[in-house]
Design a protein around this nucleic acid. Structure first.
Length: 196
DNA sequence: TCGAGCACGTCTATTACCTCA
DNA sequence: ACTGAGGTAATAGACGTGCTC
């Protein structure tokens, strides 16, 4: 089941969207600091869930705890909320600007997206983890290619060495092999020359 | 000045749930 | 209808940092 709005998303949690609520105005200077929040999503109808509506304003940890307690008390299994495209998109925009949250931005985003601050916080945590994982995969691939190149180079040098050894065995008095550094590419090269 | 205790934020590993092929 | 894989929201615990006493 794909949810199209934050309200519908809340229905996944078995919460009602019947009640509407007015949101507190944002701090006077936040829009300049957090331009991504000026998109105006969910501005007209931002229903809070019943759970949120009847819950007193709490700090992040407390609100999270309150919901956990409530879920525990009522014996409700943890339900998964699917963020809407609009919610994800705004979070992404915000993440592109700052990959970490400050408390004010967290509150503002939560209000804007009709999510709990804890959900915004979790989203940023998971987003950072995903970014890091992707980055690690890219670096891993880079190292793998580098390793392949070095292996190929190593095999080539081994072959060259074998050739030189056999050459030396055949003409011990006439040739000498020297290792020098190529001035252009800065790599070690071998040179063979006649002794007489 | 140093250390203990606390609050808070972040990271990491893991779980739980959802969607889709 | 069932199932396994993959994606991701949520949780738990460890750790670092700053502040206060």
């Amino acid at each position: 089941m794909i949810m199209d709005t934050a309200c519908e998303a809340n229905l996944v949690l078995g919460l009602s969207c019947a009640s509407t609520v007015e949101f507190e105005p944002l701090p006077p200077n936040w829009s300049a600091a957090e331009p991504s929040l000026t998109l105006g999503l969910f501005e007209s109808a931002n229903p809070k869930t019943e759970t949120e509506a009847r819950k007193p304003e709490l700090g992040d940890k407390e609100s999270c705890r309150a919901i956990s307690d409530e879920v525990e008390e009522e014996g409700i299994a943890r339900k998964k909320l699917r963020l809407t495209k609009e919610q994800s998109s705004l979070l992404e925009d915000s993440f592109r600007e700052h990959s970490t949250l400050n408390p004010r931005l967290k509150q503002a985003l939560a209000r804007k997206l009709n999510l709990r601050p804890r959900q915004v916080e979790v989203w940023f945590q998971n987003r950072r983890a995903r970014t890091k994982l992707k980055q690690t995969e890219v670096e891993c691939e880079l190292l793998r290619r580098c390793c392949e190149t070095l292996s190929t180079e190593n095999r080539k040098l081994q072959r060259e060495l074998q050739e030189l050894k056999s050459l030396k065995f055949m003409q011990p008095l006439y040739t000498a092999t020297a290792l020098t550094v190529c001035p252009s590419c800065k790599r070690m090269i071998t040179s063979t020359r006649l002794l007489k």
